[in-house]
């Protein structure tokens, strides 16, 4: 049995069915890439897995640690060990990154304002931050700023990976993490992700383009077209897509970025 099992997942947005039966097994220690052209359902997959209220589950299940996570609230999923690195991280005015990170970390540890032994100590928090900031080539000037406020595209994506590193999930979904990134930022992000790779973490990389897969080598690649997987295999699938794009499924889109998004 895999650690994270998506079975026949069907989901819709505003009454329109997008995912038409997606099944995928991810175990810790593995890196899976889900690739697909525009409109194939990649974002729907990531949002549905994390429980975004705008997406309706029409059927299927997602088993993780003996629970069907589709029945859990988004915060329960996160506390269970799931993480989503957003394609478009939102700006949240009024809440500093430090406050956000500390509250998230405390929540993850089950600190509810009462049991102080579960609370992250300032020293521990600082030391965790320092390590991860270094790997991501970020300085700490962004910590007092509001969540993602005034961050460049690259900074936002790096901040997502920073959160992932702090929260140490067991299943991480990286949704188009490479879009809008310059090559240096991709490398920093990839370094940080590769550093976390290991027997305690299963990764699902959702991407249109093969580029990020040059830096984070996937064990498995799945091609999503029109809400279903049409091809699954090893990293050779990504090489094939790099050459032919999505044309064999009738989509005239390449899998290489033609321009920085």
């Amino acid at each position: 049995m895999a650690d994270f099992e998506i079975k026949d997942l069907r989901a819709s947005v505003e009454g329109r069915q997008i995912l038409k039966g997606v099944s995928l097994d991810v175990s810790k220690g593995e890196v899976h890439a889900v690739m697909g052209p525009n409109g194939s359902g990649k974002s729907t997959l990531s949002h549905t897995l994390m429980g975004h209220p705008g997406y309706t589950v029409d059927g299927g299940s997602v088993l993780f640690k003996g629970q069907n996570v589709l029945e859990l609230e988004p915060d329960e999923r996160a506390r269970l060990g799931m993480f989503l690195a957003f394609q478009y991280p939102v700006v949240v005015p009024g809440i500093s990154m430090t406050n956000f990170l500390r509250t998230a970390l405390n929540s993850k540890r089950g600190y509810d304002g009462k049991d102080k032994s579960k609370q992250v100590t300032p020293k521990e928090f600082r030391s965790m931050l320092k390590d991860e900031l270094e790997v991501l080539h970020m300085d700490d000037s962004f910590l007092p700023r509001y969540i993602n406020d005034g961050f460049s595209g690259g900074e936002k994506k790096r901040a997502e990976i920073l959160q992932m590193a702090m929260l140490r999930p067991e299943i991480a979904i990286l949704d188009e993490t490479d879009s809008g990134l310059d090559i240096d930022s991709i490398k920093f992000v990839a370094d940080a992700v590769n550093r976390m790779r290991g027997p305690e973490l299963g990764i699902l990389i959702i991407t249109h383009y093969t580029r990020i897969l040059e830096f984070i080598k996937p064990d498995f690649v799945h091609v999503l077209v029109d809400g279903k997987f049409v091809l699954s295999g090893g990293s050779e699938v990504a090489d094939r897509l790099e050459k032919t794009g999505y044309s064999e499924w009738g989509k005239e889109e390449t899998a290489q970025p033609q321009e920085v998004a």
């Binding site: 429980g51 996160a78 957003f86 939102v90 998230a104 929540s107």
Partner: peptide, 16 residues
Amino acid sequence: PEHLFYLRSRGITEAT
């Protein structure tokens, strides 16, 4: 709701 979802996706309870 996008702000709320973002915070909750990090394990922060709805009330908090």
